[in-house]
Design a protein around this nucleic acid. Structure first.
Lengths: 103, 103
DNA sequence: TGACAATATGTCATATCTGACATATATTTA
DNA sequence: TAAATATATGTCAGATATGACATATTGTCA
C-alpha cells in the first residue's frame, strides 16, 4: 500500500496505527481492508446492475439509505457481516462471494 | 436445511425466526450461517495444523481462550469480521479464504 | 440555469460483539 | 486411576456497529 492510498484510508477514518505497528501488521490489516473494499465494490456494482436506488436496497436489507451509502463507500463503521448479508440479500451465492474475494 | 440441523443451530442460539420467516429467508440466512461455519471450521483446522493451543492463538489475535473456543464452535455471538481477522492473522490469504468459502 | 432525485456525510441512542473472567467439561499423560 | 492440560460454556461491562434522522453534496433533466 502506498502513502497516498494510506492517507486516503486514514482520511476516511481507518485506524492504521503507528508507523511501527503499521509496518508490523500491514499484511493482515491491508488484506482485511482490501477484502472489505472488494465486497463493497461488488455490492455497488450489483445494485446498479439491478437498477435499484440506495433507498430501495435499504428496504430489501432492512436498513437505511445512509447506511447503504456507507456500505458502498467503504466507511470503516461498516462490518463485513453487513456487507456480506447485503450481498446475500441481493441473491449473491457463496461461490460468487468467493469469486469477488479472489478477483 | 433439515429439521435436525435446524434444531441443532437453535440450541446454539441462532435465531431463525418464526416458521414463515424461516421459510421466507432461509436462502440468505442459511447461506450466511453456512459461510460462517465453513470459515470457523477452517480456522480450527488451521490452528491444529499449526499445533497451537487456543490460548496461543488467543495471544496472536489479541483475544481470549474462551473467544477462540466460541470462534471455533460457531457461537452466534461471533462476527464474520472476527473469524476473518483471525484467519488473516494466521497467514491465510484472501485467495485461501475464497477457497474455503467455495469448498 | 433551477428544481428534483440520488448519493454522501455527520450524529446519536440503542443493539450487538468484544475480551476477560469463572467454571464446567473433555482430553491427554504419568 | 488422578493430575495436568486443553477446550467449552456462561456471564457481563465496555467497545463497536447499527438504523434512523438531518443535512450536505452530487448528478440529471427540463
Amino acid at each position: 500500500m502506498n502513502k497516498q492510498k494510506r492517507k486516503s484510508l486514514e482520511r476516511k477514518g481507518w485506524k492504521l496505527g503507528s508507523a511501527e505497528e503499521f509496518l508490523g501488521l500491514s499484511k493482515e490489516e491491508s488484506a482485511y481492508i482490501e477484502l472489505k473494499m472488494k465486497l463493497s465494490a461488488n455490492l455497488k456494482k450489483l445494485r446498479s446492475e439491478k437498477k435499484l436506488t440506495q433507498i430501495e436496497l435499504a428496504k430489501v436489507i432492512k436498513s437505511s439509505q445512509s447506511r447503504v451509502a456507507k456500505l458502498e463507500t467503504g466507511d470503516p463503521s461498516v462490518s463485513l457481516d453487513l456487507i456480506i448479508r447485503s450481498l446475500l440479500a441481493l441473491g449473491t451465492s457463496n461461490k460468487d462471494i468467493a469469486r469477488a474475494i479472489s478477483s
